[in-house]
Design a protein around this nucleic acid. Structure first.
Lengths: 144, 144
DNA sequence: AAAATAAAAGATAAAAAACTCTTTATATAT
DNA sequence: ATATATAAAGAGTTTTTTATCTTTTATTTT
């Protein structure tokens, strides 16, 4: 579904949302440990997220990654598009190059509906909601 | 979503269903050309499908790949499981190792419903239906 | 200003996926 | 029987993804 990079990006962003605020930042080591991701690899991904302004960062002592309300309002979809691109939006599920409404693959019409729900899911779920729900104990992130 | 191998497998099986019957078989070259897939690569995948009895094959002159009613009743899901494994059935969409009903990731409950519809789609769509529908002109396969 | 800390950048390496080529085995047709 | 056609098997190669390591740059603290 999503690439490993993308999965790591989502987990890292949720983790940063938990642990940081305007005052407090989280370092790569802590993020890697807290999300069970390879440290150097997740560092690379964080660079990318930072460059695209999905997370903020500060160098130096007491530096690290953090998010403000703006970044916290990112959806899963925003992260997916930043890391994996928009393939999930436009590619045919069977991999046909020219599949479309006018030239549909055998499952195109059925898939349209399913995709709509899936995209809606990743678009409406934002990081800040995860943070809120997690704090209320509705969900668990660190389960691996 | 699916690997390239899996996409090629699905296309190849639909193509074989179109072009072959008990008497007539299709060769790798024709399959590759008819599905716009790399010849040697799709040959490899056909070996796998043949070993797992999703398609039948005969060596020698007038040999090639073919399917009987039994093979024609395979679903997309059968092909996916044969080539990509059952990850799509059991893996967490966010990549969490221990995500489950009891220990759900933030989108688990929403995804359950979407996944149900998706799996239903790939389980109920069988190769023989594609063949029938294609012959009736409802769909187009070779559009790339 | 100097030292320390932490991300950014860049280079490298390992693993997996995608793809190609060559040889072998098997069936058919002559 | 022999020649031929075709899939099976196996051994590469290339590309992409995943992962690691090193150096540089920016910031803070002392």
């Amino acid at each position: 579904m999503f690439s490993k990079s993308c999965e790591y990006a989502i987990k890292a962003m949720i983790f940063i949302a938990q642990k940081s605020d305007d005052q407090k930042r989280v370092g790569v080591k802590e993020i890697a440990k807290g999300t069970a991701t390879p440290e150097h690899f997740v560092a690379k991904i964080l660079q990318e997220l930072s460059k695209k302004r999905l997370v903020l960062s500060m160098k130096g002592p007491s530096g690290g990654f953090y998010m403000t309300n703006k970044e916290l309002s990112s959806s899963i979809s925003d992260i997916v598009k930043a890391i994996d691109g928009d393939g999930i939006y436009k590619d045919c599920v069977l991999g046909l190059k020219l599949c479309s409404e006018k030239n549909p693959c055998p499952v195109h019409h059925q898939y349209v509906e399913i995709k709509k729900n899936f995209l809606s899911m990743i678009e409406t779920n934002t990081i800040i909601e995860f943070k809120d729900k997690l704090e209320k104990g509705f969900f668990y992130l660190k389960n691996e």
